[in-house]
Design a protein around this nucleic acid. Structure first.
Lengths: 155, 155
DNA sequence: GGCAGTTATTTCAAGCATAAACCTTTAAGC
DNA sequence: GCTTAAAGGTTTATGCTTGAAATAACTGCC
């Protein structure tokens, strides 16, 4: 009474994984859109700026441009523009790296650190509400599965 | 011996949900980067183009610009540019909507439909490999949880 | 010391994305 | 008919993003 096995099924779960990917995309974009909107209306800022500030806030000693783009997994030229605007706004500053005149180190100004603290606190609330449908154990389980995807990708 | 309830813990799982969000972002961006790279090298195309073609392929009768931007959840003006380039490349075309001279209907050309079929097939393989760390039941479970997030968001 | 190769970063062109302003057409009241 | 409001789209200004090319500085080798 079991259904007959089809002869040729090279990737049995293919459709399910595709569906998962589309759903992942949908959720991520939706949450991102909400966060962007909140950052815009509450802080007149953007997600890329927040991401850069977040990375800088975890490295008080500063980061080189290439370290920054490596952490955020974005292109090198991309960071140039974002940091430029942050510097113009007094949020970040560039320091010379002694012994290497090519490089510069970027870090948050006092004002930038204070501003980020405010934004990060709100950001955490927003995320907590947006993902409120999941309980702590569900969230942790999902984190583990996502970690497996990341590890596999890195080979 | 039970631990006393803290007076003020408005959002106990806040940190876990924040971690989950950062992980979701990481996975999504990583997969997106791989897919973008593949689309670029194999088909000289981009993700936004693929998304538009995908939507159009599911609506052979064509879509109005506003329907398209609604489906993809992107801004109206955004779609204008992408469709413009697809039309220039002979992938899509615009038709007048009888009885409404404001609107136009976009659909894939024959060439566009064939091209999308090729790309979609490869795309499914890529996704299947990128998410290969998850089994079918895990994928399905995650889809359900993600659906809960989406539903909650819509209120 | 010179110079080949590497590393750090910026610049550039093209495309993507948003929000806001705008234009045209349609629909609704009166 | 005329006015007004809404709907469908495009345009514009600004910013994000990439990949490639350019620039500059450093490193090592002979």
């Amino acid at each position: 009474m079991t259904s007959p096995e089809p002869e040729m099924t090279p990737e049995p779960d293919s459709k399910g994984r595709l569906r998962l990917w589309l759903k992942l995309l949908k959720v991520t974009r939706s949450v991102e859109a909400d966060l962007r909107e909140s950052l815009r209306t509450e802080f007149a800022s953007t997600l890329p700026r927040f991401d850069v500030m977040s990375a800088l806030s975890r490295h008080a000693e500063g980061l080189k441009m290439s370290e920054l783009s490596g952490l955020l997994k974005v292109s090198n030229g991309n960071v140039t523009g974002i940091v430029e605007r942050l510097v113009d706004d007094g949020i970040a500053l560039r320091e010379a790296v002694p012994g290497d005149r090519r490089a510069s180190r970027v870090r948050l100004t006092r004002k930038g650190a204070e501003e980020f603290a405010r934004q990060a606190s709100e950001h955490e609330h927003w995320v907590n509400e947006l993902l409120g449908a999941l309980e702590a154990d569900e969230a942790n389980a999902m984190i583990e599965q996502l970690d497996r995807i990341i590890r596999e990708e890195a080979q």
